[in-house]
Nucleic acid binder design. Structure first.
Length: 761
DNA sequence: GTAGGGTTAG
């Protein structure tokens, strides 16, 4: 028996637990409820699998109140409220009378059902038991209404009121964001303990007042590991990873032994830094200290590996966890895959995951949205609301709104906005930012401005979204002015702001403003140089563009040479174009656009042999002209087209219209634009109408639906060429309204046959 | 205590 006792006191992991279990059976002690309860309590602590624990329980012939209490505690820890209630019922069924210890567990785990237990407790006369009373206060403090907690609290005679009751109230007020009440209770309470102080640290961290949190932390008469953890996670969850890691050092130096929670928090702080060296040193420490890695720590490690780019290591942890995985583990792994763009692996996990929650859906939807698969993201969102298993929240909607913006799908966007109000989903800053983005990408600058103006608080992203919108629509002056406004409001422009403003200057031809903006950037990044080269190039200052590029403190990337090539194309500069293109052929050998641009430059100069040479080079290098999808939004649906596409239900009408259009144009004496030379050369090899590229099909569809008076939005991948121009002119004349056409990153607003963007003609 | 969201350029 003595030996058993010494084994029991050393149960540190699941194997020890099994050994103890075996010993107990070996000594025929299994029917002793004392040992069973002890085993179950170890199961709780070590988070043993439920089936193992349940087996233990089931083979106990006459469980007493201690065994039942242990089981209740076990399921309560797992947050399996249904099992807790079931166990409670079984307990009563066995004629075992619940004592005052049982009710706090029940109430804590039962969620809203706890209110029912409150009545039960009063009836059984446990109402004046200090633990039960505290559990009741704690329940109302956590679940609300907090007023009920206060009522029970006030009814306790002064001399019976314990510090735990005060603490429950303090935490409750923080939970319900009554900072003043929490503070007041803290000030008037007759005695405080380490839990009280820690609650204040947690509370101030929750309202993001980390300075106040730190003041309380520094003033604490004593600190437990929980207090350290509270301060640590306060830093970690508010994005102050550096502070968290510094505090962790302090903690170690102070000789405090970190617990599992500490490790989880520190690992998560390390994740947000994404630093593989720091990660490796943390893992070494864990090994040296022989830390038990529970599911939480392992999941945090998984996430850390993934965010440091070690997807394989992350997957190994995921596989090793096996049955111990929880939904967080799954979601972390899914996000790990979407982060690196491996959508297939992510989707595979998504499909096999048991019990998806809203975060699972959000991870997958955001994964598609962030990897250029906006249409799929929206499809998945529709599936989510049809399945009705999880309710979309703000995070879901932010991704969906952004996806609508990327597609330029205004009808869809408006439907999503209606969905928000119908389902009472409130948007915070990022939600409104996504809306600004969506509206400006869809060409509704008025709506974008309205959303921006209606916001109570705006951050740098709000300004950036609107500035980029102005940039895309050629509203240069408004973009420059908005940057001044943001400075006046005390928000500092960041990298993205400058990209937006410089792009705006570029599209509006504001050379001097652009120069000033560029000069004002303290430490211009490579993208800022690219924008500046673009601006100089477009307005025809090609020499200065070239000089700017040569003076860059870093090696120019494809964006810089691309700008130069584009400018050479606009201003028909063969030599400069060749220089830029040759660099680009090294940097992006598979990008067909560069070959086409250079060939266009040659064609414009009448150098047909060179055009032919480029075509040969493409063939030899196996460079395929990228065939993107184009699509038209109509009736809340996206009609997709690809080269030689015949899949559309109105395919015959579309091709008929195309033939008609060409006939009309030929008769009217239109001549093919030189910018389409390479395409037309390629197409001549095929049956002309079959090889028609997707944008022409999209335009034809738009033209067809316009006859029915539909709203037309032609989006994505539109290199507006000769046929398309003519078609768009026809549509907008027909409609007498503004038509927005989007090619990858630029907008073309056609009003009465005129386009705001002069790039292509 | 661990998981998910918004802005960027040729």
């Amino acid at each position: 028996m003595l030996e058993l006792g010494s084994i029991a006191s050393r149960v540190g992991n699941f194997n020890h637990l099994r050994q103890l279990h075996a010993q107990i059976i070996h000594n025929s002690l299994y029917h002793h409820n004392y040992w069973v309860a002890l085993l179950i309590n170890h199961c709780t602590r070590l988070r043993a699998p439920p089936h193992y624990t349940h087996l233990l329980f089931n083979s106990t012939p006459n469980p007493n109140v201690f065994v039942f209490t242990s089981m209740l505690r076990f399921y309560s820890h797992l947050q399996d409220h249904a099992k807790v209630v079931l166990m409670f019922e079984q307990m009563q069924g066995c004629g075992v009378r619940p004592d005052a210890f049982v009710y706090p567990i029940l109430i804590k785990s039962a969620g809203n059902g706890g209110i029912g237990f409150h009545a039960h407790v009063l009836k059984l006369g446990h109402g004046s038991d200090a633990f039960v009373r505290n559990a009741v206060i704690d329940m109302y403090a956590r679940l609300g209404p907090i007023g009920h907690a206060r009522k029970v609290f006030d009814e306790i005679p002064d001399h019976e009121r314990k510090v735990a009751d005060w603490n429950a109230m303090v935490s409750g007020y923080w939970k319900w964001e009554s900072e003043g009440q929490a503070q007041w209770l803290f000030d008037v309470m007759p005695e405080r303990n380490v839990i009280t102080w820690t609650a204040m640290v947690t509370g101030y961290a929750k309202v993001k007042d980390l300075e106040a949190a730190r003041r309380y932390f520094d003033c604490m008469p004593e600190r437990s590991v929980v207090s350290w953890n509270a301060m640590l996670s306060g830093y970690a969850q508010n994005g102050l990873a550096e502070e968290a890691l510094r505090l962790f050092d302090e903690m170690v130096n102070a000789g405090i032994e970190p617990d599992e929670t500490t490790w989880v928090t520190v690992i998560s702080a390390c994740s947000s830094r994404g630093d593989p060296y720091l990660a490796a040193s943390l893992v070494r420490t864990l090994h040296q200290k022989r830390i038990q890695l529970n599911c939480f720590v392992r999941t945090a490690l998984l996430d850390m590996y993934a965010k440091c780019g070690r997807i394989g290591a992350a997957r190994r942890i995921f596989d090793e966890l096996g049955a111990y995985r929880n939904s967080v583990t799954w979601n972390a792994m899914i996000s790990a895959y979407t982060r690196v763009g491996d959508l297939d692996s992510a989707k595979e996990l998504f499909n096999t995951m048991p019990g998806r929650n809203v975060v699972t859906w959000n991870s997958m939807i955001a994964g598609y949205a962030q990897n250029g698969q906006s249409a799929v993201a929206i499809e998945l969102f529709k599936e989510m609301i049809t399945a009705k298993k999880s309710t979309p929240d703000e995070v879901t909607m932010v991704s969906v709104i952004s996806a609508c913006g990327h597609l330029g799908a205004l009808e869809l966007g408006n439907w999503v906005v209606r969905f928000l109000t119908e389902n009472q989903i409130k948007l915070s800053i990022s939600g409104h930012n996504a809306m600004i983005f969506m509206y400006s990408r869809c060409g509704s600058m008025e709506d974008a401005k309205r959303v921006f103006q209606e916001m109570a608080t705006r951050d740098v992203v709000s300004y950036n979204a609107l500035i980029s919108g102005f940039a895309a629509h050629g509203h240069g002056v408004e973009a420059v002015n908005l940057m001044s406004t943001m400075k006046e409001c005390g928000i500092e422009p960041d990298r993205v702001t400058f990209i937006g403003v410089l792009t705006a200057c570029s599209h509006a031809g504001l050379l001097e403003e652009g120069r000033k903006v560029f000069e004002s950037i303290k430490d211009p990044a490579i993208d800022h140089y690219a924008c500046m080269v673009d601006l100089l190039g477009r307005v025809g200052e090609l020499e200065e563009a070239k000089r700017t590029m040569e003076r860059m403190p870093m090696e120019p990337h494809a964006g810089v040479y691309g700008s130069l090539l584009n400018a050479s194309c606009i201003h028909k500069q063969v030599e400069l174009g060749e220089l830029a293109a040759n660099k680009l052929f090294e940097l992006e050998p598979d990008n067909s656009g560069n070959y086409i641009l250079l060939s266009n430059i040659y064609a414009a100069a009448g150098r047909w042999k060179d055009v032919e040479r480029i075509r040969e080079a493409m063939k030899k290098g196996g460079v395929k002209k990228t065939t993107g999808w184009s699509w038209v939004e109509y009736g809340g649906k996206l009609h997709k087209f690809i080269v030689a596409d015949r899949s559309h239900e109105r395919s015959d009408d579309i091709y008929q219209l195309l033939i008609e259009l060409r006939k009309q144009m030929r008769e009217a004496g239109y001549i093919a634009d030189k910018s389409c030379v390479l395409r037309d050369v390629e197409e001549e090899e095929k049956e002309e109408i079959v090889g028609t590229h997707s944008e022409k099909l999209a335009i034809c569809y738009a033209l067809l639906v316009s006859e029915a008076g539909a709203v037309i939005r032609v989006v994505k991948n539109l290199r507006v060429c000769w046929d398309c121009h003519t078609a768009i002119k026809m549509i907008s004349k027909l409609e007498g309204r503004v038509i927005i056409v989007r090619d990858n990153n630029r907008f073309h607003c056609f009003n009465d046959g005129l386009c705001s963007c002069k790039d292509y003609w």
